[in-house]
Simulated assay, not measured.
Amino acid sequence: MSIPPPPESAPVRVAVIGCGARASLARHVDPVGRATALVDPDTEARARTAEFLPGEPVQYATVADLLEAPGAVTAALVLTPDDTHAEVTIPLLEAGIAVFCEKPLAITTADADRILAVATRTGTPLYVGHNMRHMSVVRLMREIIDRGEIGEVKAVWCRHFVGHGGDYYFKDWHAERARSTGLLLQKGAHDIDVIHHLAGGYSTRVTGMGGLTLYDQVTDRRDNSDRRMADWFSLENWPPLSQRELHPVIDVEDLSMVQMQLDNGVHASYQQCHYTPDYWRNYTVIGTEGRLENFGDGEGGVVRVWNRRSGYRPDGDAEYPITGDEGGHGDADARTVAEFLAMVTDGAPTLTSPLAARHAVATAVAATESLRAGSAPREVPAPDLDRRTTS
């Protein structure tokens, strides 16, 4: 007589908190999890999200309403605006609900540290959605480094051409310092985290520079809170000074850069511009025995390696194709959500870490402070936490 297989474990019950642009992450919850709850004060936003999810998720207006239903969920995707991450995440952690918090972890270093302190004290799983660590180009660069092809890393440079910046960041709350701190944090936290990841260290001292150099000249403004990004995004919105219906308040920089000194002796730099014609990231990593550089950051691009002394050689000594990202950002999103759910169900190790996410926030905040203080250098404060409990 054969023994019947054990019953499959029930899917993780997941709440989707924030039904805006990043609610698409909920598409990747199945099959390990099931989105059983939607939380957003906007009934139309909840309805839009419910349309692409299986079943009929229970809908709540606030996190407090969700928490009044004990056992409703065991995990949550926090996809709310950045300035709300602390106020949303902390009650969930206190309630023992595992949290996936979209990056950046917070818009201030103090709030990032508060979140980490609660996660450490309660032992509730916390995951931060730095999905770029799962992008194929980043994984490939890290593999090349780990194989020793360029020796010991000494410098990392990143140029970020944010070609969609006008539509993505200057027509809604992202354009306000009060809501985002600045785009060196909101947008740059991605790349600062990748720089730390590739360099194997964290920033301790930074110098920032930049300014609001273009979008303040666009006088056509509109409160777009009644619309979604899909309503205004278009590649035809070009050139940048012809943009229309920008956010009424714009006080963040559209051109910025930061120099970083890391705790392991690596030096790094990051630059972003929000009005380039093209949209991609270019990394250069220099080691004691060579360097690597990516050309394109998705499927069809390549990473090239130079490890022989010479003059100009655009093709390098080795070339590796970037594969596995046909869906672009979505592929990294799927890997990130899967890693979160594996952590929740099996305690699996993760490529990202809350501590690393905190360091990205602290570095970006210090860089923004430096930028706005005439490029005066700033020390990046160390977290007052035990790394062993948060990394």
Rank of each mutant, 00 (worst) to 15 (best):
M1A: 09
M1L: 08
S2F: 14
I3T: 11
P4C: 12
P4K: 15
P5D: 11
P5T: 05
P5E: 12
P6W: 08
P6H: 07
P7I: 00
P7R: 02
P7V: 08
E8M: 14
E8Q: 08
E8S: 12
S9L: 12
A10M: 05
A10S: 14
A10H: 10
P11W: 05
P11D: 12
P11T: 04
P11S: 05
V12K: 01
V12C: 03
R13W: 06
R13I: 09
R13V: 10
R13Q: 10
R13M: 12
V14P: 08
V14R: 01
V14K: 07
V14I: 04
V14A: 10
A15T: 10
A15I: 04
A15Q: 02
A15H: 03
A15W: 08
V16T: 14
V16W: 05
V16L: 15
V16E: 12
V16Y: 03
V16F: 00
I17R: 10
G18H: 14
G18D: 15
G18S: 13
G18I: 03
G18A: 01
G18K: 01
C19D: 01
C19N: 11
C19T: 01
C19E: 11
C19K: 01
C19L: 02
C19R: 10
G20C: 10
G20Q: 00
A21T: 14
A21D: 15
A21Q: 15
A21R: 14
A21Y: 15
A21C: 08
R22K: 13
A23W: 09
A23M: 07
A23T: 07
A23Y: 06
S24K: 13
S24Y: 12
S24W: 11
S24F: 05
L25V: 01
L25K: 02
A26T: 07
A26I: 06
A26C: 01
A26S: 01
A26W: 08
A26H: 05
A26E: 03
R27V: 09
R27H: 07
R27T: 12
H28C: 03
H28N: 00
H28T: 04
V29D: 01
D30H: 14
D30V: 13
P31T: 03
P31Q: 03
P31D: 11
V32I: 03
V32T: 09
V32E: 00
G33W: 00
G33Y: 01
G33F: 07
A35G: 09
A35K: 02
A35Q: 09
A35I: 06
A35M: 03
A35P: 05
T36H: 05
T36C: 09
T36E: 02
A37G: 03
A37E: 00
A37N: 06
L38M: 02
L38F: 11
L38S: 02
D40G: 05
D40F: 07
D40I: 08
P41G: 06
P41S: 10
P41K: 08
P41H: 00
